[in-house]
Structure formats: structure tokens, C-alpha cells
């Protein structure tokens, strides 16, 4: 890639550029937070009584939200494990 560089302006090099990504993979952070939220909500949903159900218009909303969050968490964790950083498909740019 050869693009004009402004004089006097520091450009990042490849090493510093990918530091943020090498430190941690955001997919695991999303997967972990959504996963913990999901587990907590599923447990809370299983012990929800008639009071909680009535409040949410009869929807077992804790349980369903928890299941939804676990699905999102699973997608990100599986994505992170099957396509680890560093083997990204090379892209063609002009």
C-alpha cells in the first residue's frame, strides 16, 4: 500500500498498530459479559414467581432474555475460537 504521508506527522507502524488487538480479543470480552449476564438471567428466570410474570405481561422475560444472551455469547466465543487473531484472510486493496 503506497499512500501519501504527510510530512512531520507521525504514522503508526504495523507493530504499534496491532498492539491493541494483540492485547485482547474483543470477541472474548463480549462473549464473557453476555455469557455471565445470560447465566444470571436464566437462573433468575427459573426461580421467577407469579409476581414477576404478571409484571412482564405474562412473558417469562428473564428466562428468554437469558437464553438470547447465551446464544449471542456462544456465537462470539465460537467465532473467537475457530478464527483466532492473526490468521485473518488477506485483503486486496488498491
Amino acid at each position: 500500500m503506497s499512500e501519501p504521508v504527510q510530512p512531520g506527522q507521525p504514522q503508526t507502524t504495523v507493530e504499534t498498530g496491532s498492539r491493541m488487538q494483540r492485547l485482547f480479543d474483543l470477541r472474548y470480552v463480549i462473549g464473557a459479559l453476555m455469557g455471565v449476564y445470560g447465566i444470571v438471567l436464566v437462573i433468575r428466570g427459573l426461580i421467577d414467581g407469579p409476581e414477576e410474570l404478571a409484571r412482564a405481561a405474562g412473558v417469562s422475560i428473564n428466562l428468554w432474555t437469558g437464553i438470547g444472551l447465551l446464544v449471542v455469547a456462544a456465537i462470539f466465543l465460537v467465532w473467537g475460537i475457530t478464527r483466532p487473531l492473526g490468521i485473518d484472510v488477506e485483503e486486496n486493496i488498491d
Binding site: P10, Q11, T12, T16, G17, S18, R19, M20, Q21, L23, F24
Partner: peptide, 18 residues
């Protein structure tokens, strides 16, 4: 954690274009 990724002004202000 991200603090460890910041070595230059470009890291801090531009996220290193990465």
C-alpha cells in the same frame, strides 16, 4: 488493559489504525 497498547500519540488518538 488498553493502556498497555498506548505507546505513541497515534495509538492514543487514532487507535493505531488497526
Amino acid at each position: 488493559v488498553a493502556r498497555r497498547a498506548v505507546g505513541t500519540s497515534a495509538d492514543f488518538l487514532l487507535a493505531g489504525r488497526s
